[in-house]
């Protein structure tokens, strides 16, 4: 006897029929099963009855909005991706095998750069030493010049010497001594005034202060006397008071100088 289809297979055939995909041979096989199976037969009859023109079932037509919406999505994606893809392409191009020599060359150049930088970073110490030696030499030269110029007969040369000492970063006792000699003995009042102003720069040195106080009694120019009196007030040098008193006793003292000295003495005492 011919083997009859079981329900599961028959149902599969009905499903195939729904999908318009049941071969004639299987249809015969199915019909034999249906003779003895009411459940499957009912399903089969229904499937046959509704085989209609499904295309007639209503469907909406795509609207203009749909097309527009799609184009916007596409546009958005093109923009978004063109940005990232540009970067991706850029980086991909950077690391191609053809670029290997370029990379090698660049790295070598960078290494050389670092080497030179390192060398220079260590070199300045030597330069600093050279600079220090050089400035010491310039200092010594200036001192020599000061000592030479200060003994010149020309007043302008001696003024030059005094102004040169202002450029010296530090002065030694020899220069100070020479300046005091000029302050006390130079015949030109202008030179003495310039010297006084120069010495004032180093008034924080006890030797310079002492020298300035001693110089008070030796000055005869009113300009120098007035200046020195002002300086002593600025320096608050009380030891200078005695020298000024002695100066006031002198009958030759200029009237202007006398006034300034008296004023200074009031402040100092």
């Amino acid at each position: 006897m011919e083997k009859i289809l079981d329900c599961e297979k028959a149902q599969g055939f009905i499903a195939d029929f729904w999908a318009k995909n049941l071969p004639e041979s299987q249809k015969n096989e199915l019909e034999k099963h249906l003779e003895g199976c009411a459940e499957c037969r009912e399903a089969w009859e229904f499937a046959q009855s509704i085989r209609m023109d499904y295309a007639a079932l209503p469907l909406p037509e795509p609207s203009a909005n749909l097309q527009e919406g799609f184009e916007q999505i596409l546009k958005k994606y093109k923009n978004k991706n063109s940005f990232w893809e540009q970067w991706a392409t850029f980086f991909k191009q950077l690391f191609t095998p053809e670029k290997l020599p370029v990379w090698g060359y660049s790295l070598a150049l960078l290494a050389v750069g670092f080497g030179i930088g390192y060398y220079w970073a260590n070199k300045p110490q030597k330069d600093d030493n050279q600079l220090a030696t050089l400035s010491a030499e310039v200092q010594a030269m200036r001192e020599t010049m000061v000592m030479t110029l200060i003994k010149q007969p020309s007043a302008s040369k001696r003024l030059q010497a005094v102004s040169l000492t202002q450029e010296l970063s530090s002065v030694d006792a020899q220069v100070i001594e020479a300046l005091f000699f000029t302050l006390n003995h130079d015949e030109n009042a202008n030179v003495r005034l310039a010297t006084l102003e120069t010495l004032y720069q180093w008034a924080d040195r006890p030797a310079v202060r002492e020298g300035l106080i001693k110089a008070i009694s030796q000055q005869d120019s009113p300009m120098v006397q007035i200046t020195i009196a002002e300086m002593m007030v600025a320096l608050q040098e009380k030891k200078s008071a005695e020298s000024f008193r002695k100066l006031l006793e002198s009958k030759d003292l200029d009237q202007n100088a006398r006034q300034q000295i008296e004023k200074s003495l009031k402040v100092l005492l």
């Binding site: 599961e8 149902q11 599969g12 009905i14 499903a15 195939d16 729904w18 999908a19 399903a43 229904f46 499937a47």
Partner: peptide, 10 residues
């Protein structure tokens, strides 16, 4: 899928 289709048809 076939079983689902059959059940859906029922």
């Amino acid at each position: 899928v076939k079983i689902k289709v059959f059940r859906a048809l029922q």
